[in-house]
Design a binder for these strands. Structure first.
Lengths: 193, 193
DNA sequence: TCTTCTTACGAACATTTGTTAGAGAAAATC
DNA sequence: GATTTTCTCTAACAAATGTTCGTAAGAAGA
């Protein structure tokens, strides 16, 4: 079977690592800290992972993969550009609500990736941004959006969505749906012609 | 005089530290790294600063102070809420263009502040956010803005502005003015009724 | 010139870091 | 029940960390 006891425990380590990395940063989190939170000694974790590097790698790669596949899905839809951008924004917000810590790590700690993976990650991110920017650009040319610089519009959207992972806490008088609707309302209205 | 040779050198250390912290993180920057960039040995820097903690402290406190005083200035203006929010957004963007590294440190590495200053910083930030949120809230009540949740609108603005420090590089076919105008256009239009 | 004060340095410090080796316990297989 | 495999621990490692100490060179003041 695919979900052996080993892979489950491995995932527990990765999840706990994401939480700690988010809270204290990659450099600020020691293997002993992590081990404590998992309920193991530091040395024991090396039965599940190759090293600290690999933990960061796996987290970043997984999130990058999700981002890219979400973009890919949307690109193949038949819809207005506004609808496509809206769908993408909603997917991103949901990802952040569901996978806050991992997304946070991919957003902040990717720079500590060792070298082959670092370039890989940066390339993936760039290609993702270019794909998203193309959507915005075509929307402008189609007359759906006001004529802003595409990259400014792009980064304004991406960053505006990013705060969710930093500041949103569920169950504080604001549901995930309300959140999503308000952000989409504000960003799309700002973009629209 | 106030700008003795000592305080100048001290500022060089702080500036260089901000750059390094931004690039490699607080935990990822060693005193030896920093000393190398300043042109000193690590031990020699202790003639200018008390320790690594203090460097972070001084950077964060300075930026927090600027943020708060900017808000304070705007609050005392006579203008529409839209004009106030716009002015605040513009001030923030300018600060990020001019003080990119220091702002980055105050945004990302504040969590490594030692304990009396950590609470101090968090309190300052909270009071700043509340002040900004009040502006948005009153704007909504005055009918200038559409009825979003004030905190969602607030954080969308703050984060949308924040990417400037992360992604904007001057002299790449986009002037600081164009940048400012596009961001303001998008955010205020999104907020407006 | 002699003295005092400041600045820079090399060496060393105690800790903490990620990681490995080896031994013993537990689980799985026969 | 015996044997093999998998897991977990303690102990130790080399390297890197922030910081201190004592010393020597430099600048400033007498």
């Amino acid at each position: 079977m695919l979900t052996t006891k080993k892979t489950i425990r491995r995932q527990v380590i990765l999840d706990e690592a994401a939480k700690l990395f988010k809270e204290k940063g990659y450099g600020g989190t020691s293997m002993r800290d992590l081990a404590g939170n998992v309920g193991l000694e530091a040395a024991s974790m090396y039965n599940y992972i190759k090293g600290k590097d690999e933990i960061l790698e796996l987290i970043c790669q997984r999130i990058a993969g999700i981002y890219i596949s979400q973009l890919h899905d949307i690109e193949q839809t038949e819809a207005t550009y506004a609808a496509k951008v809206e769908a993408l924004i909603r997917l991103h917000i949901r990802l952040m609500v569901e996978e806050g810590p991992a997304v946070s790590v991919a957003n902040h700690d990717w720079k500590y990736l060792p070298e082959p993976q670092l370039t890989e990650f940066k390339d993936a991110r760039k290609s993702y941004e270019q794909g998203f920017a193309r959507l915005v650009e075509e929307g402008i040319q189609a007359g759906e959006f006001q004529p802003l610089h595409p990259s400014v519009a792009l980064f304004t959207i991406l960053s505006a969505v990013r705060w969710v992972e930093l500041w949103y806490r569920p169950g504080r008088g604001l549901s995930a749906e309300e959140l999503e609707n308000d952000i989409v309302a504000m960003l799309l209205k700002g973009l629209a012609k």
